[in-house]
């Protein structure tokens, strides 16, 4: 059991490092979602299924998607800076 938990914890740390140091923004966002997914697994193992469901659904699914949407919008704005000026 302790080995399993340690492996999950180590993978969380590894995914967090990838999220911090990866040059690829999309990869970073997905890695941040992976941290959440492992966290929800930990909650489940420790007997908190309610928290695990929230973490999996919000932390790893919705947050990732919202970040991806935001990133695609930012790239779109960088491509067409005139759009941004038109809004002000």
């Amino acid at each position: 059991m302790i080995v399993f938990l340690s492996v999950i914890g180590a993978m969380m740390v590894a995914a967090a490092l990838v999220a911090l140091y990866s040059k690829d923004i999309v990869g970073s966002i997905v890695a941040a979602g992976v941290v959440s997914l492992f966290a929800s697994l930990l909650y489940l193992v420790y007997g908190a299924p309610d928290v695990a469901m929230t973490e999996a659904a919000i932390g790893s699914a919705l947050t990732t998607v919202v970040f991806l949407f935001a990133w695609s919008r930012i790239r779109e704005m960088e491509k067409n800076p005139s759009d941004e000026e038109g809004k002000r």
Partner: peptide, 17 residues
Amino acid sequence: TPGGGFQGGVVIASGVL
């Protein structure tokens, strides 16, 4: 069962997504 309003709502929102 485990889960509730928040979790169910998020599941529905992910379906919309």
